[in-house]
Simulated assay, not measured.
Amino acid sequence: MPDLPPLTVQVRDSNLHIIGVVSDFTSLTISPRFNAVGAYVLNISADSPKADLLVPGNGLVIRRGSTVLMSGPIREPNWSRSESDGGSGSLTVNGVDDMFVLTGTCWPNPTSAPGSQADSFYKISGVVAETAMRTLVNLNFGPGAQSSRKISNLTLAADGGHGVSITRQVNQFDSLLAVLQDIGKTASLGFRVIQVGSALQFQIYEPADLSASAKFSFKLGNLTDASYSVTAPTCTKAVVVAGGSSSHRVVSVTPRADPAFPGPWVEQFVDLTSVDTASTDLTAQMAQAADEALTSGAAQGNLTMNPIDTPRLQFGRDYTVGDIVSCQVRDDFFADVVREVGITFDSQGGYVAKAVIGSSDSTDNQDVLARQFQYIARIFNRLRRLETRKPS
């Protein structure tokens, strides 16, 4: 095993102040996820002098040297003891990372009081993706939010101006995390929330393309096993429909062929019927909606592998979630985004890492449920349109 910076597990209080260090855990598993809420599980003896610190309201900051691998609140401490256990039994502490603060809703008018939410949507018009994402976080939960919604210790990193210019409509009370994921996917941006000092910081970054240097294969000796699967596309032609209620209907059809899946087009209805077709930026909004549908519905590859750190290639130092790496699949190297890494540390300082590259659908239940809900919503919308056509 190569020499690595020391692992430090700190305990923080509700004000994000460090109140202790846990060095006597029996095992620790962390699962950082790209543009999604990660999680951790820590096991420790209930007799540990630090056990009383591991309660809801407090949290963990997990570092490898000076790098924060994950930070987040404790959610579920669970105690157990069997007849064969010595002492007071064991404690299992479950927690989530600080991305959890982004799971709230986007208000149609974030600056207005709850009783004055008359708008049906929030508009993003002609700004770069990073600026749009920062604005959404700032006005809903950050320093610019109403006092009743503001997370007092949430700050925003400086705006780097990353990403393409976007124009889109955020429907009332959409999930903030889902909107950020959509924008991040189409603009090829990553985002995270981690503890910096005694505050939480929302950060946006451009993942690195390390596919030429970060390679995993059995021949290189940094891979123990791997499996790969492919999911067919769910959208290769986006049918975007705007207006139709208070304004005339406008329809656009945007195809995007997938050479790996020849055959009939896979059409998907994209509902922009709440958008007034008299809007001056209608074309940009419809193009944005089509691009997001085609990106989300593209064919997905899923590669699960067990990498081994070597002196030349180490997780957290040479690559991290969001970066593009490559892994040998049969005779060729497959390059894609590191979606998730599950790392289990033991009390002797050893650890095992398991990375997921490509689509996270098969490993992240939230993604699976989201697709199911989207499918059910499309069925409901079709039934609703049929209902309106029934003769009176």
Rank of each mutant, 00 (worst) to 15 (best):
L313I: 12
V22N: 02
S31W: 00
G72S: 11
T92I: 15
W107C: 11
V270M: 03
T363K: 08
T29V: 10
D97A: 06
R249C: 14
A199I: 04
A290D: 10
V341C: 04
T29Q: 13
T277C: 11
R149Q: 05
R134A: 05
G197W: 01
R312L: 12
S274D: 04
D119Q: 12
D209G: 06
D271Y: 06
S296N: 14
R312D: 15
W107S: 08
T92Q: 15
T254Q: 00
F173G: 04
A290C: 04
N58V: 09
V37M: 09
S116M: 12
I124D: 13
G316K: 03
Y205A: 07
E83I: 13
S326V: 12
A287W: 01
K185S: 12
S27V: 08
A158F: 03
V196K: 13
F216R: 01
I194H: 01
S347G: 00
R378N: 03
A290H: 00
V338H: 10
N109L: 10
L177Q: 12
T234K: 02
P6M: 09
M133C: 03
Y205L: 00
Y228V: 13
K215C: 09
A145D: 11
S27I: 01
Y351D: 03
T103G: 04
N15R: 15
S31C: 08
G358R: 01
Q203W: 05
S112K: 12
G184E: 00
A178Q: 04
V329W: 01
G263N: 00
S45G: 05
D367S: 13
G87R: 02
H17M: 02
S84Y: 12
D276T: 02
D85T: 10
A51C: 10
G197H: 03
D332L: 14
S147M: 06
H248G: 04
P2I: 08
S88L: 10
V250I: 15
N365M: 05
G89T: 07
E387W: 07
L180M: 08
P73C: 10
D119T: 03
V341M: 07
T8K: 08
G297M: 07
V241N: 12
A370N: 14
G115F: 07
V240R: 12
H248E: 13
V253M: 09
L282C: 09
R33S: 06
Q169P: 05
G144T: 13
I324H: 06
T277E: 08
N222S: 09
I62A: 10
V37N: 08
N15S: 09
I18P: 13
F261M: 11
V275A: 04
K219N: 07
S152Q: 09
A132C: 09
S347P: 00
G221K: 01
A187S: 12
V329L: 08
R81M: 07
R330E: 14
L139E: 14
D364H: 04
A214Y: 08
S274R: 07
Q366V: 15
V21Q: 14
Q195A: 10
A132H: 12
T224A: 09
I376T: 15
A157D: 14
Y375T: 07
D258R: 00
P143F: 00
V329S: 01
L220S: 01
G163D: 03
F141W: 15
S362L: 15
P32M: 02
G144K: 06
L136D: 11
A287R: 05
N222K: 01
M305G: 13
